[in-house]
């Protein structure tokens, strides 16, 4: 009996700016099914945080319930974490973010956790433009409860049980676009090259950054009739283009073809390059993204990649004009300024 991850790592592991190796961003060994797409996403998050040289204690991981929501245990073991109840991660994230605006918020959810029980919570986090990365690990089913169809399952798609789904699917990327998310992308757990730069850009983005990651459930929804299995997704994959994430300070060395390339500078100075595969896409237009998602779907293709970005986005703190100092850093004097100030306030309202 094993299943204990050895302590040894490759002796030549590279170190990032903080002197950390990838190992410093790992979590506990995964207890998900062997081959679950969610594990690939965890590995992509590890890789992205390592490459961004994020101090692990500067990250808070938040999730709900589900196989996907279990994954924060399996990455960033040195970061903060909160496993909320089913579908309630957005409100916990909102509270945490308002109390401490200095942390990086990484939300991980499932299609059940977000598109079913948590839909109401999700929509409000989006429209408030909460500063966080919100990843949905989308397998078209409730993996943890043995594979019931979820609200993102396509019509006609059948899981292991074999019964085709009859209901219209919710396209979470479209919902996020409609509700005002300021960064929207879609990806596939099996496409690390695309996913890692998207995560890096999403983390660097200020505002609500949503990534819908198709992530096969090998155990319950990886059969030939499922539209969320490895084979189907690979065969129907299309991309808006390739994304390069260039951190602030690093000089841009690649040469980009005119016209086909879009360059976006984020508020922290880092740059996102999209080499467009489809010239139709206008990265700053929600309508363009919504239309393309539909067009590709009509062609039976899954459009992945960066779909929309509003780099001038104002997050909840800016909209509300909250204190620049995180609430949790304010002392008693600032938080309870005393009777005089209260009197003055009351006076002003009379």
């Amino acid at each position: 009996m094993t299943y204990i991850r050895p302590a040894f790592r490759h002796p030549e592991l590279p170190r990032n700016e903080l002197g950390f190796t990838r190992k410093d961003y790992e979590g506990a060994i995964s207890t998900l099914c062997a081959g679950c797409g969610h594990d690939s996403i965890s590995a992509a998050i590890v890789q992205a945080c390592f490459e961004l040289s994020i101090a692990p204690h500067k990250v808070a991981k938040l999730s709900g319930i589900g196989c996907s929501s279990k994954t924060p245990t399996y990455f960033l073991g040195n970061s903060h974490g909160f496993n909320s109840v089913h579908g309630r991660m957005p409100s916990v994230a909102t509270g945490a973010n308002l109390a401490n605006r200095d942390l990086i918020y990484v939300g991980v959810s499932g299609d059940g956790d977000t598109a079913s029980i948590g839909m109401g919570q999700f929509t409000h986090a989006v429209r408030r433009n909460l500063n966080m990365m919100y990843v949905v690990e989308n397998n078209g089913c409730y993996g943890l409860t043995k594979g019931q169809d979820s609200a993102t399952a396509d019509i006609g798609s059948a899981s292991k049980k074999g019964e085709p789904n009859h209901f219209e699917p919710i396209d979470l990327a479209s919902v996020a676009l409609q509700l005002g998310a300021t960064f929207v992308a879609r990806s596939f757990s099996g496409d690390r090259q695309q996913l890692v730069p998207l995560i890096k850009a999403a983390i660097s983005h200020r505002g609500f950054a949503f990534i819908d990651v198709i992530s096969p459930c090998v155990t319950f929804n990886n059969n030939p009739k499922s539209t969320k299995g490895y084979e189907h997704v690979r065969d129907h994959l299309a991309a808006t283009g390739t994304v390069d994430y260039v951190p602030f300070k690093q000089e841009i060395s690649t040469e980009y073809e005119q016209g086909q390339s879009k360059e976006v500078t984020l508020h922290d100075g880092s740059v996102v390059h999209l080499h467009k595969a489809d010239p139709e896409l206008d990265l700053n237009s929600r309508r363009s993204a919504l239309r393309l998602i539909k067009d590709y779907k009509a062609k039976d293709q899954i459009l992945t990649g960066l779909l929309f970005m509003d780099e001038k986005s104002q997050d909840l703190h800016e909209i509300l004009g909250t204190s620049k100092t995180p609430l949790r850093d304010l002392g008693e004097a600032e938080l309870c300024p005393g009777q005089k100030v209260l009197d003055k306030l009351n006076e002003s309202l009379r």
Partner: peptide, 13 residues
């Protein structure tokens, strides 16, 4: 099936 599970779990890359 190219799920990357082995690549990700391998402690020594």
């Amino acid at each position: 099936i190219e799920c990357d599970a082995c690549v990700d779990i391998c402690p020594t890359d």
